[in-house]
Amino acid sequence: MTKNEFLNYLENRLSVLNKKEREDIEQEYSQHIENKLSEGMTETEAVASLGDIDTFVDEILMAYNIDPNYRNTDEQNNILSPKRSVRQKLSSAFVSFFKMKNVIWLAKTSLYVIAAIALFAIGLDFAIEISEVIDENLPSFLCIDHIVSLFFLVSYILIYVTAAISIGYGVIRYNLPVSGIKSIFKRERGENMANEKNNTMGLIIKVLIFLIKLYIIFTIMIPYAFVLMVSLVAMGALVVALLAGYPVVGLSIGCFGFNIFSIAMFAIILKLIFIKKKGENEIETYYE
């Protein structure tokens, strides 16, 4: 076994531990091997001098009070596994549906769908505005019917693509129990680390997720920020008007509510989409 093979194996076996601890342990062993190498040993000999890997991996895990026989296998967690009875499958599906990660996934998916619909609505509104101004002046091939139908087409495609990607994203990111899709992406524990590094599929998905995020920034966040600012100014104006004696009580309360809602909504979108959860891979195991 070469040094790299050894370190990869170690990484896989210790995937339950959090990243910092894992790196710490790997560093110790790699330093040990380096020292052996400088004494004139070959890599294979240096690794062999450490003794049986599985023995000391078990001991490392025991040092963290983790049962070394614990494996996060598909068999244990996959609710579609044929070995389990229908009742078991149903009950565990029910329980796992209410796990936090699924709830987050649902929230995210619906946000993506809402984002697509909102884009559609904004665009439609824009198209109608334009149609009122320029309808008469256009040549026939650019007439507003064509533009609107084209817009419909693009919007629907965007909605479906967004929904599909967000579902895929949820499946990959949160390891949803969909065995068919799961087996394609091979997210079994142990293969995680190797795959994440050189899986082109994973890279494509990452790029797509990045594009979706950009898309949301331009279609939702920026207009939202603008509307929010305008409504804050409007709020100020309304308060001044109220103090001056104009009958705008209802309007002010409405505007105030809208402000709060907007800020909350803005924060939720920001949090769910743009802030990466800290060390989610490592922590998940403990919660399960």
Partner: peptide
């Protein structure tokens, strides 16, 4: 076995 000392140190 030299590998077994590191887990001990860790513990």
């Amino acid at each position: 076995n030299e590998g077994t000392i590191y887990p001990l140190l860790k513990r």
